[in-house]
Nucleic acid binder design. Sequence first.
RNA 1: GCCCGGGUGGCGGAAGGGAAGACGCGAUGGCCUCAAAAGCCAUUGUCCUUCGGGGCGUGUGGGUUCGAAUCCCACCCCGGGCACCA
Length: 806
Amino acid sequence: MAAAYDIQAVEKKWQDYWVERGTYQVDNDDPRPKFYCLCMYPYPSGPAHQGHVRNYTFGDLIVRHRTMHGYGVLTPMGFDSFGLPAENAALKTGVHPRSFTDERIAELKASILRLGSQYDWRREVRSHDPEYIKWSQRIFLRLLDAGLAYRKKAPVNWCPGCQTVLANEQVLADGTCERSGDVVVKRDLEQWFLKITAYAEELLADLDQLDWPERVKTMQRNWIGRSEGAEFDLEVQGRPDVKLRVFTTRPDTTFGMTYAVVAPEHPLVDELTTPDRRDEVRAFVDRVTLETEVERQTTEGSLEKRGVFTGSSVVNPFNSQPVPVYLADYVLMGYGTGAIMAVPGEDQRDWDFAKTHGLPIIRTVEPPDDWEGEAYTGDGPAINSEWLNGLDKERAIRKAIEWLEEKGIGVRTVNYRLRDWLVSRQRFWGCPIPVVYCPDHGVVPVPEDQLPVLAPDDVEFRPTGESPLRFHEGFLNTTCPIDGEPALRETDTMDTFVDSSWYFLRFTDAWNEDMPFSKEAASKWMPVDQYIGGIEHAILHLMYARFFTKALADLDIAPKELREPFSRLFTQGMIRLGGTKMSKSKGNLITPQQFFDTVGADALRLHHLFMGPPADDVDWTDAGIKGTSNFMQRLWRLADAESDAVPIAAESVEVEVNRAAHRLIARVSDEYERWSYNTAVAACMEFTNYLYKQGKTEFAVDSLLLLMAPMTPHITAELWERRHPGEHIHEQRWPEADVTMAAEETVVMIIQVNGKLRDRLNVKPSIDEAEMEKLALESPKVREVLDGSNPKRVIAKPPRLVNLVV
RNA sequence: GCCCGGGUGGCGGAAGGGAAGACGCGAUGGCCUCAAAAGCCAUUGUCCUUCGGGGCGUGUGGGUUCGAAUCCCACCCCGGGCACCA
């Protein structure tokens, strides 16, 4: 009688073994070729949910698979442990965010351990660890020193719910906060920014070299939003001292300008407004600037283009005609120059505005004859444009820019949609921005030997809308590092995306006490060879991390040649329950815990792999897990050294069984490379069914276990040890298929008549076209269908298919 | 509105222009058992069938091809991203 499969004992045994043995710990002088596999470090929100399980299952599978291929795999893990939920909890319960966070880390870590995914925990980082804070702050100061961090008063996105400002990236398209869902309002505040725009061009260009999902790259390209065009000055009639600069991507259409528009926030608004228009303009500006983004956006639509005439006119430099200047809220101060020339003939927004305000429309590009639309933005010969007439769009643009540059009126420019990254947050539970404000010296960085600047513990959490740091006298009052006179500390903390923008570098050198990481360590492991995480980070985290990597390389902190942090990216699909995303906030979590206790981690992991293609969203159902759980039991009975549930293969079929095993190795190896894990699992199940029928061989069972080792590490380790005492499956080499053994002895040839399947025959793989045709014509089933007629044409694709066309 | 994905049995899904539905769940039947559970074996797209087999079938309509779930065009539906960026 064979031993039963004691899931809990087996999984515990190997989880302890891997840690004690340090199977998945790597040192920086590891002689094996390097492979850096990283799962996005999690925000600690309590016990793992299915999204974590899915993520870490893929990651662990890659770690173990690569290890079996002889790589020294760096597999670190940590916690993105600063963030709002801990602080919100503190407001409600009074529990300090640190203890709240530490508790949740412990819970999450415990479930990660039970999943059996392996990390080099010696390298663990936590964003809220004073060591980590110290290096985040040093990096901030280096950015400040290099002019990449700066302060600026700016209209910022203020979330009344979160009581903090948000980055543009954190405001949803409908003008609400991505976290709380509150309507975001604009406020003018002094804020810290990081100059990500300095890297706009490189961030865009380097996307081409990344092995990332196309849609993530597309999202980033759209976000950066590069557009080429020209900037030029418009003279204001009767005001030789004032010039209005506009940006356009279509300088070829300038002859069609029938008015100009400036944003309500434009600095020249007062200059441009004539006394008789003052009251109306002021009323319009007040209305627009006090509105929320949402209100401002609800005015979108063809007939509602809102604006007001300033009373001034500017001169079209191409034809010297004066045109009126309007204020309109469809022109944004934050993009280009905050002013445009309006060409209604070739821009739908301008068209709508012109119609609403009774302004003339002149087409300067000939639309196609069958054109029935309004503004025409396509290509065509220029018309009504004097010296540009007849030229196509591209040539006209070039000529128009040349003309502007010759005359010294304007220049070719490139604009980006990307804005600088607003990083200051009026929150407590984040990394303090390490500067002080001195009455005499202004903004003074805290000297590096005084880092980290840590938030005090004895603060009171009150829903005041301001950071509790503001009211802590001991923290707030300090002295100026330059003159020793009284000064005030910065009380804002950094966006938590700052922490996650360099953690992957800290992992390479987590013990370093002198600097965030050494260039040697970063050179050894970077870039990350495989990064795995959710699609929701397609823009924010992945863009910031790319920016940091480039900036740190330029600041001589990271290796100079390190321009990109993540060579390959895989974004897993979301887990849904009944059509909606499974998440804590939606309250529809199915925790993995119950499955650890019943079917075990291996069956749960396998279920995640089997559910569907890794990149696809999946609907969670409890039912399916029975299949992988059964399979584990079936595998145990097949492979346990003492089990006789499956007989040894008869001598007559032994070779064929081994040949099938070689085919399995070839197939599954390929499927691992292609991330086709659901079919890899299917192949293993199919092969198991086959062995139940045909009988097993040593080679077949060993191969099966090796191929499954990265997917179901515990059961395969146990079975391997029982079959090969003293050996560890995860220290074995990945099996290789023998090509001649894997080749099929006979294949099925299908015979079609007019593309319809009529017969199938077993043939040798070496069969030639003539032989195929002969066999096809001899088939009784084919003869019946042909009914005496001769095929007009024969298509033979040896050895699998022949098609007779009649 | 624009840009990406995607629509295949009762369900999750497979099929790299050449056998549609691998594998799994569910369901049905059998073996084992005093019985049940577990296990093992078989059947399972749909309609017709004289049980040999035959017709139909991958969102809809067209097309390319000897051959289309797969490629092309148009449309419908679902999911995601962007959205006054001049």
